[in-house]
Nucleic acid binder design. Structure first.
Length: 855
RNA sequence: GCGGGCGUGAUGGAAUGGUAGACAUAUCGGACUUAAAAUCCGAAGGCCUUAGUGCCGUGUGGGUUCGAGUCCCACCGCCCGCACCA
């Protein structure tokens, strides 16, 4: 009797079998090479989405392949569980962030388990577990002691109506999301990690990350932003302190038209206190959010302070000092000189305020003066200089910068300086649902670290009066908590106050990979375990984490090494990184709608064939490839797919259509097709088992194809070419289905097919493996190895090009030498016709690939 | 605004600088069937009064090369990040 493919039955059965055999429990003691594969852990929103399925399936393919190639695999899962959504939920519909979060974790875990991932669930933790964040507090104290943490002022988004700090995403068009009030930038004392001390090292070490995408390394390099420039001071015409500026283009000093200072520069601060007009201007500059984007795109504003400075090259040349809103106090010295001819921002500013524009160099072939577009050629391009002070005539920007730094240093008025764009990492958050910062503020002793034996400093569940915390009141509930805040000073014992800020959730995710190596240890890590399991051999996640999360993690690994929690070998924690694309899906709007603004219809509200809305019959538009999101009503719930088709279908589909680093478009027909294909494989295998035909001449052809499939599929899996592996699996399935080979050969081919599919469709593969008489679990069966001799064909088909266009093809023996190939190629009719008796100008023979005849 | 990336048939995509469109979807045709579903077989980038190993064709325009989807330059469009979203 032929059995039908029933995913529900098969999947539950094999998940139970894996559990029973305990094959995914990572065991330090096993006598095999270790392999640590990690996907970026999820935020527990409550529902898994297709992006999760894709991310974890990719990791699972790697993990299962490594298991089958004899590795001791660590493949853990946890929850990035602190953060704003939990507080927002409490605000919106009552309840407690903790209950909401743990409820969501339970829901998501129950949605993930049916996917059949090879995860060691015994290592699971959530960052909001006191056991985890208590160790994070210990880590913080060690870092504080090591001088890696300090306090300073920093600006935050301030909502003047709600009297609260806003996250950047809570600022919409410069206004607070709830109050609608215009947001201001306000200073607050905050805790910082000294990541900037490691700028040079984090930059240099990028070169060692060979298995990271080049684009991610480049993004980090630009983010760290090392620059060499000149620092020097402008003497003032009054008696005031000189103004120190930093410039990366000292070569354009003769094009200076003003000196600009940040609204937060000490001189601006002083004027602000003295002069109401300046105070008003500076207040205007502080309007709007803190993001670099908001600051850079804001309209350029300037205020002439009346202060004048002397040009260092010509003391009789006076430059005005302006306060300008686009100058950041955080970068360089907070003061610049503006050269409008060669900087678009400076030019826009000068045109607006009628300041002079002086060209200092021209293109070699064009000497038209700058008008509305600044002339900013790449620094490697040679330009012609106008009366250059260091004597240059024609030189590249690079050469000019070096020459002018030398010139200023020799003349004694300036100094070559290296600076970085990377700022220290502010970790304070004025919020409840995060890891409490374990310090106490004492009137006598100042800021005192909490004692380690008092850790974890746990978040209070209620408001201190036995009532639920009221999250509808703006501001941090910890800050208004009557007794959680009050605590004796760890140093002198006098009444003191706890720090009520909690940590940035990036802290939580900066060391979880290390914690997975010993998740129940009573110290942040267990060195022996960390030494064995680290580094993460393959890390997989979204490109949106290319900079912050990955840079912070690299810093934290270094900090953990310094504080004795990680070995020196683990300071670059991720040996290989892969950034996967999103899952998209079409969305539906009325005719004339927009894929950005909608309005949107749910898939069940429309007939996509007829392109109408079902209830009203009105015409609709279909936009393909839109990022799945609730607001666009185009989310496909993985659980529905798992229930109707099975996990293997969902897994197969998310891997099949697109290269992993690119977005994949979810389509109903694609999912249906994936299911049909798996059912077909099941049917083919069943038919083979029931057949009985003798060995014959087709056996070798099938087995040759089988070895090619082993080679190609393995290659795809090893190089993140999952879509290519799947294409090959389709092709090999077609070959097998059509083959006239004998039963024994077909059975062997089908067993190999089941094995090759097992990282992608593990349940179906187990079923087929059993059906075809495989021993034990396919998950533990040694990965097949291609026989090199079976991969090579005796003859190859070579295309013949004439002047680069394909005109003919020849079939020759694989190892025929070049001269012979050339002779055969030249004798073809097409070539003879093209040559028309003349000799070819040139013949290029690429063995095994192509022949090109130039006539 | 700044930094990074992507762009190939109707659709998702394949292609160490070497036969563009593998594999799949949708479509169309055929077989099987009383019929449908399922399954199996096949066609298919565009163009053409010459149906040809014909011409054109990988966002647009240039360039390098015997040869460019692939490398370089410029432009257009879309996506990601911009330090308190995770």
């Amino acid at each position: 009797m032929m059995s039908r493919y029933s995913a529900t039955e098969i999947e539950a059965k094999w998940q139970e079998a894996w559990d029973k055999a305990g094959i995914f429990t990572a065991d330090h003691k096993a006598d095999k090479p270790k392999y640590y594969v990690l996907e970026m852990f999820p935020y527990p929103s409550g529902r898994i989405h297709m992006g999760h399925v894709r991310n974890y399936t990719m990791g699972d393919v790697i993990a299962r392949h490594k298991l089958a190639t004899g590795h001791n695999v660590l493949h853990p899962m946890g929850w990035d569980a602190f953060g704003m959504p939990a507080e927002n939920a409490a605000m919106a519909s009552g309840g407690h962030p903790k209950d909401w979060t743990y409820g969501n974790i339970a829901d998501m875990r129950s949605q993930m388990k049916p996917l059949g991932l090879s995860i060691d669930w015994s290592r699971e933790f959530a960052t909001c577990d006191p056991e985890y964040y208590g160790q994070q507090q210990a880590l913080f104290l060690d870092m504080l002691e090591a001088g890696l943490v300090y306090r300073k002022n920093a600006v935050v988004n301030w909502d003047p109506v709600d009297m609260t700090v806003l996250a950047n995403e809570q600022v919409e068009n410069g206004r607070g999301w709830r109050s609608g009030a215009l947001v201001e930038r306000r200073e607050l004392t905050q805790w910082f990690f000294k990541i900037s001390d490691y700028s040079e090292e984090l930059l240099d070490a990028l070169d060692t990350l060979e298995n990271w995408p080049a684009k991610v390394r480049l993004m980090q390099e630009n983010w760290i932003g090392k620059s060499r420039g000149l620092q020097f001071s402008f003497e003032r015409t009054d008696e005031g302190e000189p103004i120190t500026v930093y410039t990366t283009r000292p070569d354009t000093l003769l094009g200076a038209s003003f000196v600009g200072i940040s609204p937060d520069h000490p001189i601006a601060r002083q004027l602000e206190a003295e002069n109401p007009e300046v105070a008003e201007f500076v207040a205007e500059c502080r309007k709007g959010g803190t993001t670099e984007e908001a600051i850079e795109t804001a309209e350029k504003l300037g205020y002439d302070t009346g202060i004048r400075v002397k040009h260092p090259l010509d003391p009789s040349w006076e430059l005005p000092v302006w306060i300008a809103n686009f100058i950041l106090m955080d970068y360089g010295t907070g003061a610049i000189f503006a050269c409008p001819a060669h900087d678009q921002r400076d030019l826009d500013f000068c045109r607006k305020y009628g300041l002079p524009v002086v060209d200092t160099f021209f293109a070699l072939d064009d000497d038209s003066p700058v008008d509305k577009i600044a002339f900013v050629p790449p620094k490697t391009v040679k330009v012609r200089w106008v009366n250059h002070f260091a004597g240059l005539t024609e030189a590249t920007g690079e050469e000019a910068i070096n020459a002018t730094v030398d010139f200023a240093e020799k003349a004694g008025w300036g100094e070559g300086v290296t600076k970085y764009r990377l700022r220290d990492w502010g970790l304070s958050r004025q919020r409840y649902w995060g890891c409490p910062i374990p310090v106490v503020h004492c009137e006598k002793c100042g800021t005192v670290p909490e004692k380690k034996e008092n850790l974890p400093i746990e978040l209070p569940y209620d408001d201190g009066n036995g009532k639920p915390i009221d999250f509808s009141i703006p501001g941090n509930p910890l800050d208004r908590h009557p007794n959680w805040r009050d605590t004796p000073c760890p140093s002198c014992g006098a009444p003191a106050k706890r720090e009520t800020d909690t940590m940035d959730t990036f802290v939580d995710s900066s060391w979880y990979y290390a914690r997975f190596t010993a998740p129940r240890a009573e110290t942040p890590t267990d060195l022996a375990e960390a030494e064995y399991w680290m580094n993460v051999d393959q890390y997989i996640g979204g490109i949106e984490h290319a900079i912050l999360h990955l840079l912070y993690s690299r810093f934290f690994a270094r900090a953990m090494n310094i504080t004795g929690h990680l070995p020196k070998t683990a300071i670059e924690p991720f040996n290989a990184l892969f950034t996967q694309g999103m899952v998209t899906h079409e969305c539906y709007t009325p005719e004339g709608g927009s894929e950005k603004r909608g309005p949107f219809f749910f898939p069940e509200e429309v007939d996509r064939e007829k392109k109408i809305k079902l209830d009203t019959g009105e015409p609709i538009w279909i936009f393909p490839s839109v990022k799945m999101s609730k607001s666009k009503k185009n989310v496909v719930d993985p659980m529905e797919i798992v229930q109707s088709y099975g996990a293997d279908t969902a897994r197969w589909f998310v891997l099949s259509d697109s290269p992993p680093e690119r977005d994949v478009e979810w389509t109903a027909s694609g999912a249906e097709a994936a299911f049909k294909h798996l059912a077909r494989v099941h049917r083919i295998a069943s038919e083979i088992v029931e057949s009985d035909s003798p060995a014959n001449a087709d056996d070798e052809t099938l087995l040759r194809e089988m070895h090619k499939a082993i080679h190609d599929v393995s290659g795809g899996v090893e190089s993140f070419g999952f879509n290519a592996s799947i294409a090959k699996l389709y092709a090999f399935t077609n070959t097998l289905a059509k083959s006239k080979a004998g039963t024994a050969a077909k059975r062997e081919a089908a067993k190999t097919l089941a094995q090759l599919m097992s990282p992608m469709t593990p349940h179906l593969s187990e079923e087929l493996w059993q059906l075809l008489g495989g021993e034990g679990l396919v998950a533990m069966a040694p990965w097949p190895v291609a026989d090199e001799a079976m991969l090579i064909d005796d003859t190859v088909t070579l295309p013949i090009q004439i002047n680069g266009k394909r005109r003919a093809e020849i079939s020759v023996a694989k190892d025929l030498d070049k001269a012979e190939v050339e002779k055969i190629a030249l004798s073809t009719e097409a070539v003879q016709k093209a040559l028309d008796g003349a000799a070819p100008k040139k013949v290029i023979v690429v063995p095994g690939r192509i022949v090109n005849v130039v006539v």
